[in-house]
Design a protein around this nucleic acid. Sequence first.
DNA 1: CCGAAACATAACTAAGTAGTAATATTATGA
DNA 2: TCATAATATTACTACTTAGTTATGTTTCGG
Lengths: 110, 110
Amino acid sequence: MAKSMSPELLTLVAERFKALADPARLRLLNVMRPGERTVGDLVDETGLSQANVSKHLAQLHSLGFVKRRKEGLFVYYALADKDIFRLCDVMCGRIEAELKDRARVLKATG
Amino acid sequence: MAKSMSPELLTLVAERFKALADPARLRLLNVMRPGERTVGDLVDETGLSQANVSKHLAQLHSLGFVKRRKEGLFVYYALADKDIFRLCDVMCGRIEAELKDRARVLKATG
DNA sequence: CCGAAACATAACTAAGTAGTAATATTATGA
DNA sequence: TCATAATATTACTACTTAGTTATGTTTCGG
């Protein structure tokens, strides 16, 4: 984090964290991991409704997390870059550490 | 992101992103960057109300982003680790790239 | 003990948001 | 041009949550 983060910058950062703060959007991003997917693919692979998927994709796209490519009737979405992996890796590392710690405590207690 | 992220894991990850998806909490974390702070310090340096600060700190603490140390009447909060810097750095990099890109487009258009 | 200071918590309100159902838009082929 | 398929958008509802006010809890000095 830079030395002095202005409230405006913090708002922009928060806005981006918020885009990743939803299980449905994370599922969509996860499905796109191997490569681009059409909206229909994403509907099928997540079980979410079409309208819901479209809305989530619009949000992820507006913040630059995914890119879109139109081909005939279909629109292909793909991850814009590898940042999401890095971000999720950090979070997963935290969760893993927590679980380990919890297991350690349980072992010591029980 | 791991190959197969279960919905449960994604929910845990989303929960943690959500903790960072608020300007007030980011401000608190930013104030704690140089070192530990009492609740009163955080109230003064952020301008948030005491109750509000306590609530945000409880949330950040429950998810392991900050640690607490009690000393007499005062409670000192501090960043639990350096993950927050890494996470915010990624987000700031994205924002910077966006702004650059927007400037480039404006230059080409105007 | 008592009062005050530091912090936490509870109850409440207002604003934001995910999901749905219905409708609109766009592109294709007959 | 028309019907249809894929996606986007709109209007709405239910739920969540940030902030406030008021109150509770803990700790210490006198």
